[in-house]
Amino acid sequence: MELVQLLFIFTLAAFLGYQLISKIPSQLHTPLMSGSNAISGITIVAAILALQADLAQDDLVRWIGFAALVLASINVVGGYVVTDRMLEMFKKKENKKE
């Protein structure tokens, strides 16, 4: 893919991200952080692609990819679950209020 194209996408995403969260209530700062942290675990895609079947003979590279996959998976699963746990607590109160 063209370098310019990638930069184009990056720049648009940066502006989009900034606009998306222009006004967040401070109550939600922690879940927002852990939730977005889970999204940064998107590296999991790169780690999966790194584990090519024909590449297995080179041990070091394979272990690097494997380690990246484990770490990214921790990040993804842990991040989403803990965020859900937190938001559930916030939710509980909302219901009580009704």
Binding site: M1, A13, L20, I21, S40, A46
Partner: peptide, 30 residues
Amino acid sequence: GLAASAAGFVIQNNVLIVAGCLVGASGLIL
């Protein structure tokens, strides 16, 4: 997030670039 985005540039993968960049921007706002 920015690190994930940079990794996206390394493997030329759009979804990494976009998702990483979103996180980068949101973290920066915070």
